[in-house]
């Protein structure tokens, strides 16, 4: 399988779409290198709005651009867009229902060695709590391209987050998705693993390990964090013996709690939430941190067996 970073898949697709649609704007925060959006800046200098290291203004400017009929993608590290500019996202994007897409890159613990200032393990929780917001977390380059194309055609306040490193593709080119519907990666009858973003590949590998041991695991890619696909969650709760959720986010307020909310109201079952605990994140690269906090195929498989 190819290994491509979601951010590169996003910027390549956005550039392609901007060639066909002159209403597409990109707003940057001295982040063109980290976002990999340099080509867009060169090709469309008047539609590439460099706001400098000023995330609050960047999101506000985006809302003004959107109010004049444009489709605006604000790009930058998720740690800053989802925290420093949060009031602007709340007021200028969500409350005003402007056509602004906040695209946070190098999210979660992608910047692990840079320390706690650069993590974004709170963004699902905060963005989910805003009325009108669509919250997306693509799992690979194929899905990122699909979602980018979708966002280029819709008027919808959105937060989309993606990591920094290259990830193995989960899907074959040409795969299609439905917003608000989980994508079933594997069917299974014993247990369900629900993942999002770059933990989907971990879930897929965990299911493969479980299969070797005679356990049939269903894997759902919950790339739409909000609105959550309630139907697939309830179905999983009823048809399998338990649910494991997996996310590069705090165990508070993210995918795990969203799933738990649904099952506790509609189809009570055992749920194990795997993510980052309520403690200061250790310093280390993504791989080391995923291993330390148990976001590995081995640990997911082992936790799955405990639920059976």
């Amino acid at each position: 399988m190819a290994k491509v970073s979601c951010r590169k898949a996003f910027t390549a697709k956005l550039l392609e779409l901007a060639r066909e649609n002159d209403k597409i704007y990109a707003v940057a925060t001295d982040s063109r290198g980290s976002v990999t959006i340099g080509k867009f800046a060169e090709e469309f200098p008047t539609r590439f709005i460099e706001c400098g290291i000023a995330e609050q203004n960047a999101v506000g400017v985006a809302s003004g651009l959107a109010k004049d009929g444009n489709n605006v993608f604000v790009t930058g590290p998720a740690c800053f867009l989802a925290a420093r500019a949060f009031e602007q996202v709340k007021v200028d994007v969500a409350y005003n229902k402007t056509n602004v897409k906040i695209v946070g890159v190098s999210s979660g613990v992608s910047y692990g060695p840079l320390g706690g200032t650069h993590t974004s393990l709170h963004d699902y929780a905060s963005m989910r709590a805003l009325a009108n917001m669509l919250v997306l977390a693509p799992s690979d380059n194929i899905q990122t391209e699909y979602l980018t194309e979708y966002l280029a055609k819709t008027h919808q306040p959105t937060y989309m987050r993606m990591g920094r490193g290259d990830v193995e593709s989960v899907y074959e080119a040409g795969e299609s998705f439905e917003i608000g519907k989980a994508k079933q990666v594997y069917d299974g009858t014993d247990i369900t693993i629900i993942a999002c973003g770059e933990t989907v590949i971990v879930a897929k590998k965990a299911a493969e390990k479980l299969k070797e041991q005679g356990i049939s695991a269903r894997v759902l890619d919950m790339f739409t964090i909000k609105p959550l696909d309630t139907e697939s969650v309830v179905k999983a709760a009823k048809e399998t013996k338990g649910i494991i959720t997996l996310e590069e986010h705090s165990i508070y307020g993210g995918l795990g709690e969203a799933v738990t909310h649904v099952v506790s109201e509609l189809a009570p079952t055992k749920v194990k939430i795997l993510g980052f605990p309520d403690e200061e994140v250790k310093i280390g690269n993504s791989k080391e941190l995923f291993e330390h906090y148990g976001l590995t195929p081995e640990n997911v498989a082992s936790e799955a067996k405990k639920l059976l």
Partner: peptide, 24 residues
């Protein structure tokens, strides 16, 4: 044109509108 109330937001929105108007 745009809902306001949290202070310090209006000028950024105005900048965005002015950029778009100039571009077209």
């Amino acid at each position: 044109e745009i809902a306001t109330g949290a202070l310090g937001h209006g000028l950024s929105a105005g900048v965005g509108m002015a950029i778009s108007l100039k571009n077209r």
